[in-house]
Design a protein around this nucleic acid. Sequence first.
DNA 1: CCTACCGATCGGTAGG
DNA 2: CCTACCGATCGGTAGG
Lengths: 224, 224
Amino acid sequence: MISSPTHVAPKRTRGRPRKTEGERDDGNRRQALIAAAAQLFHRKGYDATSTREIAAQVGMQPGSPFYHFGNKQDLLLAVMVEGMRQAAVRQNAAIATLSAQKTDRDRLRVLIRNQFDVLLGPDSDFIPVMLYEWRSLSAEQRQTITQIKDDYEAVWIPVLQALHDSGQLQAPVGLARLMIFGALNWSVQWYQPPSPKTSAKKNQRATLDDLTEAALALFLRDPA
Amino acid sequence: MISSPTHVAPKRTRGRPRKTEGERDDGNRRQALIAAAAQLFHRKGYDATSTREIAAQVGMQPGSPFYHFGNKQDLLLAVMVEGMRQAAVRQNAAIATLSAQKTDRDRLRVLIRNQFDVLLGPDSDFIPVMLYEWRSLSAEQRQTITQIKDDYEAVWIPVLQALHDSGQLQAPVGLARLMIFGALNWSVQWYQPPSPKTSAKKNQRATLDDLTEAALALFLRDPA
DNA sequence: CCTACCGATCGGTAGG
DNA sequence: CCTACCGATCGGTAGG
């Protein structure tokens, strides 16, 4: 076997960060761009973030993101699609763990808790970008996201309907769903996680579990 | 009395729109800039709106807004301050009309209804800009808005506390307030007013009164 | 993916 | 408030 140049095992300590030669590089840089974009779009907003900043964050040159994405808008769409993919995976997993004898209230608890996790937990840059940069998408791109989001939210409908039928949820299901999502999604604007250092102190901030129980207490009545 | 030049009553049909000569012009152009900025910031976002567009909308030259405002950020702040001023005026007026024998539920209804009006009613560009362009303010400007907003929201606290004490509101008052505002504020993202033409038709959209009743049904239990 | 580059736009200013 | 202007930045591209 003729040794190819890639066998030389070059010790590159200079230059941009690159995958070791044997590694499959397929979507790796692309994923890095999406993650960097999500973080910057979340922190500074879409319009206020330059493609140069995103490139710099992953060690690329200013023009290089356009090798992976046709334009800046496509990168924004990729962030949102990736976020919804993760959210749906988590939501499906959370639902799957529910045993049959759980109550509808338990089901809603799981959905709400997962939503807070997606909004405020680790790796939670993607969904806030989707929620707050919707306006920057093209009409066609919005359709794409709308479809994905509708699928995600559809899981909530039967749970809310069951709660409505049993009298635990009084508002019309359609408006209730919109307002509940609003109450949860808005937490991105004000929630600050409890600092681990002062965890023993008195001025503890609310945990995601606290938020979940507060939401349930706010929306649901006791079962009849 | 010597006739001053302003008495000539010049018939200007050319040139930029100007106030008739006798009129006091003090903050008039400034107010026009604020209103135009509010509309454009609401529709396109702060970063995506150029000061040139704002100037054009009120018939000014590209550099002229900077005669009224030191920079673009100051104009954004002015939009928000004006919005909060209007919202506070309306809220105070709404509260003042409440007779003493009204229930706490009635009080909350009035507050929620006013909030929907401020968010979705006529001249409702200002508050959405405040809610969704917060990030674009400087740290100092945020303090200014925070104080005004705290005053506005303070009115809600005793009402929510009373409802909590009587068992109609079960969630902790602090978190309940944040989530209720979230549910209401989020309506900016999805609400579309009923079209007047098809008002007799079947596919009616919700009115602001509908939203208010749905919100009350969602948050409150029947009094004990 | 880098190099080198461009046209367009933008916030803001000097001077009247 | 207009005229005239500037420096900076930005999204994006050609060619390798």
